[in-house]
Simulated assay, not measured.
Amino acid sequence: MTTLHQDALVIDGLIIAKWSREVFDDMRRGGLSAANCTVSVWEGFQDTVANIAEMKKQIRDYSDILTLVRTTEDVRRAKAEGKTGIILGFQNAHAFEDNLGYIEAFADMGVRVVQLCYNTQNLVGTGCYERDGGLSGFGREVINEMNRVGIMVDLSHVGGNTSREAILESKKPVCYSHCLPSGLKEHPRNKSDEELRFIADHGGFIGVTMFPPFLKRGIEATVDDYVEAMDYIINLVGEDCVGYGTDFTQGYDKGFFDWITHDKGRHRRLTNFGTILNPEGIRTIGETPNLTAAMEKAGWSESKIRKVLGENWLRVFADVWGC
């Protein structure tokens, strides 16, 4: 682990691993100060509450290495204490069901990031894998309530029309927590140069993923390809509104991918990712220090590295969370 990585604030903008002591130990090996950890995708309100309860139990059980994040100060404290801060996040607003009151309830539980749609349509708007009718009236209310209670709006899997309308509706910064540029590879999940500029021009934030099906060289990619994708976006929008969000799926098997790639987790198949093999050099969360080394190898300045590793995320979280 380089001295810079050891010293830097390191925030992974999206991990959807199978939560276990082994994964959390790997987060410590990787030097993660905090991570946005997915606790809901297709689940409704009740099952999502159960997921949150289970995650909080693990945070208590493994309090030697973990702490719950409610504020940016919690992230700084996690870093100072050599722990990893767990940010509770959803990849779908499905758990809000049709009840705006649930949004504040989840905020009280500690949820701090929610993606509006996961690939397809819900009550809020439309995902990236079907015809996009834009943000619903209810969706506008959802965004306003998320703004009020301090939950960040995530648009990573959201369709282009819904994303654009959400960016314009939100009074606080929104994000793509984990995306890649379609300028390097055409894919329904990747964002065009125009979309990337639009979110940045409106005060939003871009976390860059390394999920192999969306990378230019797919499963042949290395950590250097990941850094290249970050640089592509930074060259479009500047280095102050870009971070990283790996989308690690550590610990999951084929059954998990079957579940997340079927609409609502059980109906029609939306996509087939094929072989999932993370870029050479960053196959596991514990190899995250290699990302910093690859940034240094690419000639990045120390300030640019520190911003993209975590300082940018922390600044935008403070804007949204208000603390």
Results as ranks from 00 to 15, higher is better:
residue 192 S to K: 08
residue 27 M to G: 04
residue 85 G to I: 05
residue 81 E to A: 13
residue 287 E to F: 06
residue 152 M to I: 11
residue 281 G to Y: 11
residue 245 G to T: 08
residue 159 G to A: 09
residue 85 G to Q: 10
residue 137 G to A: 08
residue 37 C to A: 11
residue 66 L to V: 07
residue 217 R to C: 01
residue 19 W to H: 12
residue 269 R to D: 02
residue 108 D to W: 08
residue 29 R to K: 15
residue 203 G to E: 09
residue 73 E to T: 10
residue 89 G to H: 04
residue 214 F to P: 02
residue 201 D to Y: 02
residue 301 S to A: 09
residue 138 F to M: 04
residue 35 A to Y: 03
residue 268 R to H: 15
residue 222 T to K: 05
residue 194 E to R: 12
residue 162 T to W: 05
residue 90 F to E: 10
residue 85 G to C: 09
residue 163 S to I: 04
residue 6 Q to I: 00
residue 231 D to V: 03
residue 131 R to M: 11
residue 183 G to Q: 03
residue 264 K to E: 12
residue 67 T to N: 01
residue 322 G to C: 06
residue 4 L to N: 01
residue 9 L to K: 02
residue 105 A to H: 10
residue 309 L to C: 07
residue 64 D to N: 11
residue 254 K to A: 15
residue 311 E to N: 14
residue 267 H to R: 14
residue 162 T to Y: 05
residue 104 E to N: 12
residue 8 A to R: 02
residue 282 I to D: 04
residue 274 G to R: 10
residue 248 F to L: 08
residue 116 L to D: 05
residue 73 E to H: 12
residue 20 S to K: 07
residue 250 Q to A: 15
residue 100 L to K: 11
residue 18 K to G: 01
residue 313 W to R: 06
residue 20 S to G: 04
residue 311 E to C: 02
residue 63 S to N: 15
residue 172 K to G: 06
residue 183 G to F: 02
residue 282 I to N: 14
residue 143 I to R: 08
residue 118 Y to C: 04
residue 259 W to T: 14
residue 188 P to M: 05
residue 313 W to T: 14
residue 172 K to M: 07
residue 130 E to C: 13
residue 5 H to M: 00
residue 64 D to I: 05
residue 224 D to T: 07
residue 290 N to P: 07
residue 299 G to F: 09
residue 84 T to C: 15
residue 276 I to A: 10
residue 132 D to I: 05
residue 56 K to E: 09
residue 246 T to I: 01
residue 314 L to N: 13
residue 128 C to N: 15
residue 110 G to L: 12
residue 106 F to T: 09
residue 80 A to Q: 14
residue 250 Q to I: 06
residue 52 I to A: 06
residue 185 K to S: 09
residue 6 Q to W: 00
residue 295 M to A: 10
residue 44 G to D: 14
residue 172 K to D: 00
residue 266 R to E: 14
residue 244 Y to L: 14
residue 153 V to W: 08
residue 26 D to I: 00
residue 80 A to H: 12
residue 170 S to E: 04
residue 93 A to N: 03
residue 62 Y to S: 01
residue 177 S to I: 00
residue 162 T to L: 09
residue 233 I to Y: 02
residue 182 S to N: 12
residue 36 N to F: 13
residue 186 E to H: 12
residue 27 M to Q: 07
